[in-house]
Design a protein around this nucleic acid. Structure first.
Lengths: 203, 203
DNA sequence: CGGGTGATTCAACAAGCGTAGAATTCAACA
DNA sequence: TGTTGAATTCTACGCTTGTTGAATCACCCG
C-alpha cells in the first residue's frame, strides 16, 4: 500500500524556499506581536514548518529576530533625499518620505516591529536607539545649526514616532483611518516648524 | 526554644499595609516591563510577599493590572485646564500640562505602563484607545471646528505620545536627557501650530 | 549506484508562567 | 476565652516557552 501522505520526517521533494518563508513569517509575527509576544512555534506554524527547523536555520530566537529586522532599505537614504529638498519644503518632504517608506509593505513592518519590541526587550530598544540616532537624528541635526539643533531634530523625530505609534500600534481611530494624502500636509507643516526653529547649517 | 525567624505561614503581627505595597510594586513592574513582561512572582518578590497573596487580593493578573492602571488623577482635567488658556497660548499650555503631569511620580508611570502594555496586549490597547479618545481627543477636537478638527487633534496627540515614547521607552538620548524647561517651548510651538491649523470652535 | 550533505520532523527537556487549594498564624469580637 | 475571619505561606498542577539531539528522507556528486 502506497501512503501518499507526507512522511513524518526527512527532506521534501522539489526546490526549497522554506528559509525565506520562515523569515517572512517571522517578520510578520514580530511586526504584529513584538519580540516577546511572537513565539517560535507560532512562526513555524505560519510557515507550515516544524519549530525545530526555525532554530536549525537561525540558531536562536535572537538570531531570527536579527535576521528579520534587517531593513530591506537604507533609511539614511530616505532621510537624505528629504533633506535635499529646498529649505522651506523639507518638512513636507520628510513627512511624505517617512510616511510612504513605512507604509510600504516589507519595510514599515520592520520599523514597527522594532518599535514594538523595544518596549519589552532592552536589546531591541538599544537597536532602535542606534537606528534612530544614525539614520534620522544625526542627518537631520546636521542640516541645522546652533545649540538646540539636536533637541529640535529629536523632537521632529519623536513626532514621526508618535504618528507611527498612534496609527499602527495603538490604532487610535482618526489616525489609523486617515489617508496619507490627508496626513502628509498637516504633519509636514509641523515638521517644517521645527526646521524653522533652528538656523540652517552652512552648506 | 523560641524561634525568632518568620513563621512559614499565617498572619503577621502589627498593622498591615501589604495591599498597598503590592499595588505599588505592580505599578512599578507594569511601568518598566509592560503587562506581559511583568510577572506575578516578580511583583510579589518586590513587595516581599508570597505570589499567592497577590492573587488573593486582586483575583487575577488582569485584575491587578486594572487596579494598578487606575489613574491617580483625572486626565480630562489636565487637558481642560490647558484648553482654558487664551487661544494663542494653548499649545504651550498643553505641552506644559501634559509634560509635567506624566513627569510627576505616580501618574506618569501609569500612562507609560499603559502605552507599554498596549503594544503586546490587545485589552490594554483598547483601554489606551478609550482613554486617549475620551480624555484628550474629544476635548481638544471640541475646541476646534471644521472637518479636519478630529484629524488635527489626533496629530497633536500623536506628538505628545511620540515624545513620551522617545523619552521614556526608547530613551533616545537628546530627548531622554532634555529638561522640561527646554522641551516645553519647542513642543508648545508645534502644538500651537496644530491649533492654528483649524478654525476655533464658537464659544 | 553509493555515500555524504542538507532539509525536515519527532520527542523531550528544563524553566517559567498564572493559578488553585489547603494549611498556618494572627487579630478582633462575643 | 473561644470562635470566626482575615492575612499569609506552601505546594502543586497544567500550560507554554526556547532549545536540543536523534532520526528520517531527498538531492547531488563521484
Amino acid at each position: 500500500m502506497v501512503t501518499s501522505s507526507t512522511p513524518r520526517g526527512g527532506r521534501r521533494p522539489g526546490a526549497t524556499s522554506t528559509r525565506a518563508a520562515i523569515l517572512a513569517a517571522a517578520r510578520a509575527a514580530f511586526f504584529e506581536r513584538s519580540y516577546d509576544g511572537a513565539t517560535i512555534r507560532g512562526i513555524a506554524a505560519a510557515a507550515a514548518v516544524d519549530p525545530a527547523l526555525v532554530l536549525h536555520y537561525y540558531g536562536s530566537k535572537r538570531g531570527l529576530f536579527a535576521a528579520a529586522m534587517d531593513l530591506p532599505f537604507d533609511p539614511g537614504d530616505v532621510v537624505a533625499a528629504a533633506l535635499a529638498a529646498p529649505r522651506e519644503e523639507r518638512g513636507l518632504a520628510l513627512a511624505r518620505a517617512a510616511l510612504t517608506a513605512w507604509e510600504a509593505p516589507g519595510s514599515g513592518e520592520v520599523l514597527i516591529g522594532l518599535m514594538r519590541s523595544a518596549v519589552s526587550d532592552e536589546a531591541s530598544a538599544a537597536r532602535l536607539r542606534e537606528f534612530l540616532t544614525e539614520a534620522v537624528l544625526v542627518p537631520v541635526a546636521a542640516s541645522l545649526e546652533g545649540p538646540r539643533a539636536m533637541l529640535v531634530a529629536s523632537l521632529a523625530m519623536s513626532h514621526l514616532m508618535g504618528v507611527l505609534f498612534a496609527r499602527h500600534i495603538a490604532r487610535v481611530g482618526p489616525l489609523a483611518d486617515a489617508s496619507l494624502a490627508g496626513l502628509v500636509p498637516l504633519l509636514g507643516a509641523a515638521l517644517q516648524q521645527y526646521f524653522d526653529a533652528a538656523p540652517e547649517a552652512p552648506a
